[in-house]
Design a protein around this nucleic acid. Structure first.
Ligand code: MN
Ligand code: MN
Ligand code: ZN
Ligand code: ZN
Lengths: 127, 127
DNA sequence: TAATATCTGATAATGATTATCATTCTTTAA
DNA sequence: TTAAAGAATGATAATCATTATCAGATATTA
């Protein structure tokens, strides 16, 4: 795995500091605000690299990619309308049905258990 | 839940027939190919409606939304590079670690268990 | 039937992401 | 150490999936 360069370190730092998921544009603005000079293309390029390395996670809300560190929290309830995503904070076993039980505050439509990584061809393809 | 109109029925039919996930543009082209006249805006609008109703599922690959019916299959391994997504076809309990055991064909980075639906505010917001 | 609300399609506008390319930084090999 | 080769960067233009607009069509209601 290629070692993180300076740009990638800056991106990771911003994600650590801010805590909450950020768009590429927001990350770009934040790095600049911190006095670093960086181009928007570089942000996109390194976000892609960090993604392939499995260091950051991406989801799309309203046609905008939202980036965050790969964290411990991996159980979420995501609203299909507003995109809000709240950690469930419960164990895997009880995760699926729990929200339906919780006072109907969240109306469950379906769930997904997804494993992310690299398929065999892509492992060779990305040195 | 509002009853599916004609456009929505056409979209669902295409997704059923084609089996595989399709982009909005592909769905649009397919409906036209089947002789139906429809505007691209209508396709997008009704895809959004079907999403809010929980009838279809969306994921984003290379900055393009890919739509599919909400199916039984809900356990997947997704490649971060090419976006290929293969059903795991295993039970929830063993899902998470199984891929790591399977001959390293797929290199696991992380996983997500996600429940989709409507949050409380959005339930009222969408009549 | 007429008034009203909803849906549709053609088209323009948007904007996040990607491509381009000259320049700068880094690594490699003489 | 130095020069060539390679990789990363930044400014900017281009792309294109998606959204907004709005006039006309269609459905619903009274
Ligand atoms: Mn988990
Ligand atoms: Mn399941
Ligand atoms: Zn919501
Ligand atoms: Zn792959």
């Amino acid at each position: 795995m290629k070692t993180p360069n300076h740009s990638q370190a800056n991106i990771l730092k911003v994600l650590e500091q801010t805590k909450k998921p950020l768009s590429a544009q927001e990350i770009w603005a934040e790095i600049q605000k911190q006095g670093q000079k960086i181009g928007v293309a570089t942000v996109y390029r390194n976000l892609e690299s960090l993604k392939i390395k499995g260091l950051i996670q991406i989801r799309t809300v309203h046609n905008q990619a939202i980036y965050s560190l790969v964290s411990e929290k991996q159980n979420f309830a995501t609203c299909l309308q507003c995109g809000e995503r709240t950690p469930l904070g419960i164990s895997l076993a009880q995760s699926v049905e729990a929200p339906t039980l919780q006072s109907q505050a969240f109306e469950v439509y379906y769930h997904t258990l997804e494993v992310f990584g690299l398929c065999s061809p892509c492992q060779e393809r990305s040195p």
